[in-house]
């Protein structure tokens, strides 16, 4: 318990970021028209692909002899990239079709 409390104190900036981001996330999309629900979901899907950064760090820090870490890390980079690239491209394709009509 003390460990967790200590960690909380050491990371209080992060905790503040989390709390503010929660409110921001809710506010920012608060008035989205239902037409845009699908593209928005897809766009948000691409943004959480930011997890790729963790994968890159894991990959970059793996010892060259540790094959388990290398393989899992490599897989993580591939999957994370899929999430990011696929997410943004699909979203753009959806929105491209909306654009034509304007």
């Amino acid at each position: 318990m003390t460990e967790i409390l200590g960690w909380l104190q050491a990371h209080q900036q992060m905790v503040y970021i989390v709390i503010l981001s929660i409110f921001l996330g809710v506010e920012v999309i608060g008035r989205v028209p239902s037409v845009l629900h699908t593209p928005l979901m897809s766009g948000a899907n691409a943004i959480h692909g930011v997890v790729i950064i963790g994968a890159i760090i894991v990959m970059g820090q793996a010892d060259s002899g540790n094959y388990l870490a290398l393989i899992l890390g490599f897989l993580a980079v591939v999957l994370g990239t899929l999430n990011v690239v696929g997410g943004f491209v699909v979203t753009d394709r959806m929105l491209e079709m909306f654009k034509k009509k304007k």
Binding site: M14, I17, V18, S21, I22, F23, L24, G25, V26, V28, I29, G30, V32, H37, L40, M41, A44, N45, I47, H48, V50, V51, I53, G54
Partner: peptide, 15 residues
């Protein structure tokens, strides 16, 4: 990672 993740977490829940 924190802002991106939490933003999507919150916005996704609202959605």
């Amino acid at each position: 990672m924190l802002t991106g993740g939490i933003l999507v977490g919150a916005a996704g829940t609202l959605l």
